[in-house]
Design a protein around this nucleic acid. Structure first.
Length: 129
DNA sequence: GAGATGACGTCCA
DNA sequence: ATGGACGCCATCT
């Protein structure tokens, strides 16, 4: 039997002040230059831990919180430059956006390898600080 | 009000 | 390199 039930239960949490957290995420997304990509965890690591959230929980959940923020990302931001740590595009049930995301990245000169993976060593955005 | 449904990453065998 | 376990639920139908 799989224990995914309990894991799933713990997996999907939301930050205390969702809107505030989301805005912090979007602010970072807005800074990603054309032709570069960032991962969910990378963005998460740039955001300070909110008061009242345990260290352990924050570390475990923050990457997914970023995903949650991206689900309602303003369309004027370069949302397509956010991918997962595998170098792949994270799919929602809506694979239409998946195709659009790949198209936009290719238009910026980003190459996709076998299995639809992007080489993060080459394309990862490394902010000054 | 109940049920389905979520843009992930790290650590350890 | 690869696979599995684990990590404080809220929101929309």
């Amino acid at each position: 039997m799989k224990k995914t039930v309990r894991v799933t239960k713990l997996l999907f949490t939301t930050p205390p002040l969702r809107q505030v957290f989301n805005e912090q995420v979007w602010e970072i997304v807005a800074r990603v230059p054309k032709g570069k990509v960032v991962t969910y965890g990378q963005i998460a690591a740039m955001i300070p831990r909110p008061r009242g959230v345990g260290v352990k929980h924050f570390r475990a959940a923050r990457a997914r919180w970023v995903g949650g923020a991206m689900a309602s990302c303003p369309s004027n931001l370069p949302w397509h430059r956010v991918i997962n740590v595998q170098g792949k595009i994270s799919v929602r049930s809506n694979n239409k956006h998946h195709l659009l995301q790949r198209q936009r990245l290719e238009d910026e000169g980003i190459l996709f390898g076998a299995g639809g993976r992007i080489d993060l060593h080459v394309n990862r955005w490394r902010p000054r600080k």
